[in-house]
Amino acid sequence: MFRIGAHVSISGGVAKAVDREREVGGNCGQIFVGSPRGWAVSEVDEDDADAFVEAAGAQDVGPWIVHGTYLVNLATPKDDLAAKSLDTVQAELDAAAALDIPYYVFHPGAHTGAGEETGIQNVGERLSELDVPAGVTLLLENTAGKGTTVGTHFADLDQMVAVSAHDYDDLGVCLDTCHLYAAGYDFTTEAGMAEMIEDLDATIGVENVHYLHLNDSKHPLGSEKDEHEHLGEGEIGEEGFRRFINHAALREKPMVLETPEDEKGYAWNVEKARELRDEE
């Protein structure tokens, strides 16, 4: 089954996310467990968690994924920011476990002048300090490359895992299409797609990619700019997404949208993804 959904709100209780997902036509989904631009992580109410698990099961919506706050930076050379980031990531991981959500994803962060190699090393070492709960896989998200962010290339993400005391039993990767394209991975052509998958398999391993973010890009290939567009209406285009979501190495992985929330909205993008999906 094609698992496609969108990022939805938990306002009023996390259990309400299931109905919101169904309203946009999704059958898997992504949530925050706190403000995306703050450090506080919402305490999981046991009754609300039970209601969420029950509703998700009854309506066959899943797998779900928790997205970490944007403030997290494990690549930073600043010890105080790293400590705050680790506390927040741990709380978000624990919230995912309490909600029986199998995946948690976050952006590795930026080295802010310390150097890319140092930033990657910092991420790996700090991952080692996390207690990844049983039943949850922590996913590193690839980045577009703007500024001093780390994790732009597959080999960088793989190196973070190699440095960490954890391995691919606890860790994995979530690939974002806008970030891939902005970083210079041109999967819009047959040759480019084949080259990207070959690179992916030689580093991270396709089997260690657990989730996909579907977002078109407002900016050209290699721009290093992270600005999302509706599916098919950006630089990647319809054929690029048709190639991506139907590729044998990727088509069985769950996919969620983080496209603009304007007059088109998520429902339009979910339907577009279904239109581009080849039948089994």
Rank of each mutant, 00 (worst) to 15 (best):
4 I>V: 15
6 A>G: 00
8 V>H: 02
8 V>N: 02
8 V>I: 09
9 S>A: 09
10 I>M: 07
11 S>P: 04
11 S>R: 10
16 K>S: 08
16 K>N: 08
18 V>M: 06
20 R>K: 07
21 E>Q: 14
28 C>E: 00
29 G>Q: 01
29 G>I: 07
32 F>A: 04
32 F>W: 04
34 G>N: 01
35 S>G: 13
36 P>V: 07
36 P>N: 04
38 G>T: 02
38 G>H: 01
39 W>E: 04
44 V>N: 05
45 D>H: 07
47 D>G: 13
48 D>H: 05
49 A>Q: 07
49 A>L: 07
52 F>G: 06
56 A>E: 00
57 G>A: 11
58 A>F: 05
59 Q>H: 05
59 Q>G: 01
59 Q>N: 03
59 Q>T: 02
62 G>R: 08
62 G>V: 05
63 P>G: 12
63 P>R: 13
64 W>P: 02
66 V>R: 11
69 T>M: 03
71 L>T: 00
72 V>M: 14
73 N>E: 04
73 N>G: 05
76 T>C: 13
76 T>A: 13
80 D>C: 12
80 D>V: 13
84 K>D: 00
85 S>V: 12
85 S>L: 10
85 S>G: 08
87 D>L: 12
90 Q>P: 00
92 E>T: 10
92 E>Q: 14
95 A>K: 05
97 A>W: 02
98 A>G: 06
99 L>N: 06
99 L>F: 09
106 F>M: 03
106 F>I: 01
108 P>K: 11
109 G>H: 08
109 G>T: 08
114 A>I: 12
115 G>P: 00
121 Q>Y: 15
121 Q>V: 13
123 V>Y: 02
129 E>S: 12
129 E>T: 09
130 L>S: 06
130 L>W: 14
131 D>A: 14
132 V>Q: 02
134 A>K: 14
138 L>P: 10
139 L>P: 10
139 L>C: 09
140 L>D: 01
142 N>V: 04
144 A>G: 11
145 G>A: 09
146 K>A: 14
146 K>Y: 10
147 G>W: 04
156 D>S: 02
156 D>C: 00
157 L>Q: 01
160 M>H: 03
164 S>P: 04
169 D>F: 09
171 L>A: 06
173 V>K: 00
173 V>Q: 02
176 D>W: 08
183 A>G: 10
187 F>M: 14
188 T>M: 10
189 T>D: 03
191 A>E: 15
196 M>Y: 11
196 M>G: 03
198 E>C: 08
200 L>D: 13
202 A>S: 12
202 A>V: 03
204 I>T: 09
211 Y>Q: 02
212 L>G: 08
218 K>N: 06
226 D>H: 03
226 D>C: 07
226 D>I: 02
227 E>K: 14
229 E>W: 01
230 H>N: 12
232 G>R: 09
233 E>F: 11
233 E>S: 12
233 E>K: 15
234 G>W: 04
234 G>E: 05
235 E>S: 14
237 G>L: 11
239 E>R: 09
239 E>T: 13
240 G>F: 15
245 I>H: 03
246 N>H: 12
246 N>W: 15
246 N>I: 12
247 H>V: 04
249 A>I: 03
251 R>G: 00
251 R>L: 08
252 E>V: 05
254 P>Y: 11
258 E>F: 13
258 E>D: 04
259 T>Q: 05
262 D>N: 15
263 E>K: 06
263 E>L: 05
268 W>M: 05
270 V>P: 00
272 K>M: 14
276 L>H: 10
